[in-house]
Design a binder for these strands. Structure first.
Length: 277
DNA sequence: GTCCGGTGGT
DNA sequence: ACCACCGGAC
């Protein structure tokens, strides 16, 4: 098992040296920049994240600059990325960070809203050089296939130290991401050109994820509502109903969900506007 | 386990 | 039409 792990690291890092992708954020250790790109890239195709990252870092070079801005401004820049909760949590985090720096909360980055196990370790590895694994969907998939285990998280809990031994964690984490994106892809992996192929267990888990239709979903209405609100400072519920053509029940569900997420406010007179806090 | 958006690949 | 995308909150 130790040999298999060593070969994984050798072959993966060798592949990475020749094939790694170049992104604008990979040259920085600045925790704010790392944090920004990690929040932006959650569940988002990485090539699109790059454009947004450049916009955000230009507009908000520091946490303070974002904290002094408004949620609406952040949502405007965010428009098109989806999962608007991320923008709200990012804005909340900037306020916390303008009071307490990254260095002062290190390593407890999970106190920031929107930061879970993955993002915490991404900041630790990419900004602080700590020897930790940023466990994302790529790493889990590669571990599952290569070692032939159903529960990659559990496997990594036990063996992360042997994976990290004698390697730069930043290189290793990015190597897994690039490799998972370019070779060991979720659909149609390129096993024929894979440098890990001889050692790989080639275990393809049959566990299916469940998907809900997007068309007609609450998510779709939420997105439309928020987009409209970015153009009109405030809007009445009647106007919203007319413009979106959704049934009242479905619209109300979306509105109350957005209000619960503190993205908008429904006033007494049924006037709706983006939350200003 | 479900919800949270928008886009591109197949 | 289906699936995945450098996850997290509930």
């Amino acid at each position: 098992m130790e040999i298999k792990t060593r070969k994984l690291k050798q072959n993966l890092l060798s592949w990475y040296r020749k094939n790694k992708r170049t992104f604008s954020w990979r040259n920085t250790n600045n925790p704010w920049k790392i944090f920004l790109v990690e929040i932006i890239s959650q569940q988002t195709q990485i090539n699109r994240a790059d454009d947004y990252y450049k916009k955000f870092i230009k507009e908000f070079p520091t946490p303070e600059s974002m904290a002094r801005s408004s949620l609406k401004k952040v949502l405007e820049l965010w428009s098109g990325l989806g999962y608007n909760n991320r923008a709200k949590r990012l804005y909340e985090s900037s306020k916390i960070l303008s009071e307490s720096s990254f260095d002062s909360i290190n390593p407890n980055f999970e106190i920031l809203p929107g930061v879970g196990p993955y993002t915490k370790n991404a900041i630790l590895s990419f900004a602080y050089g700590d020897s930790v694994l940023a466990i994302d969907t790529n790493l889990e998939r590669i571990i599952t296939r290569y070692f032939g285990v159903d529960d990659a998280k559990d496997y990594l809990k036990r063996y992360s130290q042997s994976l990290l031994k004698k390697v730069n964690s930043k290189d290793l984490n990015q190597a897994f991401m690039d490799f998972g994106s370019m070779v060991c892809t979720s659909l149609n992996p390129s096993c024929d050109i894979c440098p890990l192929e001889t050692e790989c267990s080639k275990y393809f888990s049959k566990i299916k994820k469940s998907y809900q239709k997007f068309e007609g979903s609450n998510r779709e209405i939420r997105g439309k509502v928020l987009k409209l609100l970015l153009n009109e400072d405030q809007i009445s519920k009647e106007e919203l109903t007319n413009k979106l053509g959704e049934e009242e029940g479905k619209l109300n569900k979306a509105l109350h969900g957005l209000q619960k997420d503190n993205l908008l406010i429904i006033k007494k007179n049924n006037i709706i506007e983006i939350n200003s806090k």
